[in-house]
Amino acid sequence: MRTVATHLKIINQFFEIEKKLAHLSGAESTQRHLARIRDHFNELGFQIHVPLGESYPDTRTDCEASIAGTSTEDLVITDVIKPIVHLAEDGAPLLLQKGVVITKSRS
């Protein structure tokens, strides 16, 4: 379990790097390596999902969300602070880390 906890810390740092590089011009050559790192995490059983832009209905419980603005209807995820991480265990995915997100109403 300690190894899994450490992997999770690495995944969170990886996510930060990915986020920063996406805004950096000239960093396109790093995309390949980022994709490879993701593949290696997949090999270990981790699924990393960044739910940016996805809907956030009342039934969605894979994130911890804060709601910006006044309305609470028809929410969409506008910022991702930590990604959703699942760990595949014998085919059944385990929700290892809830995504930490900011949401806002579409209307």
């Binding site: 969605r60 419980t61 894979d62 059944a92 929700l95 809830k98």
Partner: peptide
Amino acid sequence: RADGGYDTG
């Protein structure tokens, strides 16, 4: 959902 990521309440 079994992983805890979906709940209708």
